[in-house]
């Protein structure tokens, strides 16, 4: 289980996250929603260890990891697909995958892991020797997702996986995420601005506004809107 207790993130005077608590269980998808600047990325970065935590705790299966450096958290099974399509752009597709595998859990042999990725996204095999920076947006997102799953993570954080992609590609990406979450039974967290998109596949959702939780509940409930507080209003 992934648990946040009263987590606050500050960049100097900027309060990006204020007292956020959350529990995410294995086998479930948690949607982190909110407008641009709401604090979604800060929340994820605090979990993977690259945001300044001012107060509160991050726990993985009960273990407090708040002060551990990012590579140690990665070794504990945290995989974070950062926003902005972060890849080693000069390295080839295959080198990106190899590197991710090398510093991951290595539950399977490299060849088998690569074969699995290529079976899922054949276009990545075709482009195996191409620099990652030269792929199309959709292909890059497939590679980013594959770089996280090839590490056999236990906690998967996906920051705006749909951003800037054509609707048909978004569908494909979300199909993959839903399947992977169901099969692997790990903790999955998705940050999105497009609330309905993420909520449709999520078991629980959490809406942030200026760093605070303004709405939380089961995915279904949030989609339909409960006790007059509609999802749309919380974005205003």
């Amino acid at each position: 289980m992934l648990e946040l207790r009263n987590l606050s993130v500050r960049y100097g005077a900027v309060r990006a996250l204020e007292g956020v608590s959350l529990q995410a269980v294995p086998g479930g998808i948690t949607a982190i929603l909110g407008a641009n600047g709401a604090g979604k990325s800060s929340l994820m970065r605090a979990i993977s260890g690259i945001a300044p935590v001012a107060a509160g705790q991050v726990l993985l299966d009960g273990q407090d990891i708040t002060t551990l450096p990012p590579p140690v958290r990665a070794r504990l099974g945290v995989a974070h697909a950062m926003e902005g399509r972060r890849l080693f752009r000069q390295l080839t597709v295959e080198d990106n995958l190899k590197l991710a595998w090398s510093f991951g859990a290595r539950r399977e042999k490299l060849a088998a892991s690569l074969a699995e990725v290529y079976a899922r996204f054949p276009i990545l095999e075709t482009k195996a020797r191409t620099a990652a920076g030269l792929l199309s947006g959709g292909q890059q997102q497939m590679l980013i997702l594959s770089c996280t799953t090839i590490r056999s993570p236990r906690f998967l954080l996906l920051d705006e996986p749909s951003l800037g992609l054509a609707p048909i590609i978004v569908q494909q990406i979300y199909g993959f995420i839903t399947n992977y979450a169901a099969q692997s039974g790990i903790v999955v967290m998705i940050a999105e601005q497009m609330a309905t998109l993420a909520l449709r596949v999520s078991h629980q959702g959490l809406v942030l506004r200026r760093g605070r939780v303004v709405l939380a509940g089961a995915g279904e409930e949030l989609l339909r809107g409960n006790d007059g507080k509609t999802l749309a209003a919380s974005y205003l």
Binding site: G49, R89, Q90
Partner: peptide
């Protein structure tokens, strides 16, 4: 070597290297 690739990765994007579990320090 993997470590050689890791050094290259750090040169390209140190933050990404960190979250991928590469011991950058």
């Amino acid at each position: 070597t993997v470590w050689g690739h890791a050094v290259h990765a750090v040169s390209l994007d140190p933050e990404l290297a960190l979250v991928q579990g590469i011991p950058v320090r």
